[in-house]
Every structure is written in C-alpha cells, then in structure tokens.
C-alpha cells in the first residue's frame, strides 16, 4: 500500500515540479512526458519502492505510475482545461513586429531563441516574422510575414 501511495505522490509531485520549471525553447518532449522520464530516471523511485526490491513491489509501482499516466492522458483529452493546467497554453511572443517583453522575460526567452527557430524555417531576419508562438512543448512556431500576406 505504501508503494502505491508513494508512487501517486511521486508522480504528482514531479508533475508539479517539472511543470513549474517553465518551458524552455527547443524542447522536444512536453512537460507531461518529462514526468515519465524523470520517474523512470529514478529520483522518486527510490522512495517509491524503498528497501522492498521485490518483483511484486516493483510491478505494483510501475502499474500505479502507468495507470496515473493513462488517467492524466484521458483527463487531458476529455477536459481541455485540465490539459492547459498540465501542459500550459501556447503563448504569442512576437505579434506583427512587436515583442511581448514581459512574457518573454517570464518565460526566460530571448530574441535569439526566436531567431534560431526562424533560421530553421529558412528566414534570415526577424522582420520576416509575423507571429512567433511559444508552443506547449517548448518549441517556437514561426509564421512568416510574406507567407501570411500572400495567403490574405
């Protein structure tokens, strides 16, 4: 029973910790997925299984974490609001030639991060960007100024 309780606490504690670490640009995994990586990495697993290294205990811990992950996934899909809490919301950092400096400061993002994302799209200048969006997984989406004009 202690293993299950420790696993539940460990899962949600790590979810909270990783979630408040704030997205960094260039992230490949969502924060939500990082939780699993961390758990498998074994920080909390030490207190989860404790000294009981029996197969029974480890299987119970893994099943608990798996069920929690499945439940959180279901809740994210079922309730978009819950998804926003777990993964965050996309944020507009560059809006038609204007930086949201307050937002960038809080998200620890700078112009170079946006330019790096722009370069990967083949853009050579910040002036070619119409919108830059910090996505939930930490990546930056670029919407090109010329492209959006041509579409209009």
């Amino acid at each position: 029973m202690a293993t299950v309780l420790h696993a539940v606490f460990g899962y949600f504690f790590l979810l909270l910790t990783v979630r408040i670490l704030t997205r960094r640009p260039g992230g490949q995994l969502t924060l939500f997925e990082f939780v699993i990586v961390f758990l498998i990495g074994g920080v909390i697993i030490l207190s989860t299984v404790g000294k009981d290294r029996s197969l029974t205990n480890c299987v119970c811990a893994i099943i608990t974490v798996g069920l929690l992950h499945q439940s959180v996934s279901w809740l994210r899909a079922r309730y978009p609001r819950f998804g926003v809490i777990v993964d965050g919301t996309p944020l507009l950092v560059l809006d038609r030639g204007k930086w949201d400096t307050d937002l960038m400061k809080k998200m620890r993002l700078d112009e170079n991060d946006v330019m790096a994302a722009a370069r990967s799209k083949g853009l050579t200048s910040l002036t070619q960007i119409k919108y830059a969006v910090l996505e939930r997984n930490g990546s930056i989406s670029i919407i090109q100024a010329e492209a959006s004009k041509s579409e209009a």
Partner: peptide, 12 residues
C-alpha cells in the same frame, strides 16, 4: 482573426 493559436493569457 487570422492565426489559430489558442493562447490563454489570463490563465498564464
């Protein structure tokens, strides 16, 4: 009215 982002600044 041109880019679907789904930003929720109030939540943020």
């Amino acid at each position: 009215g041109e880019v679907a982002i789904g930003e929720d600044l109030e939540f943020q």
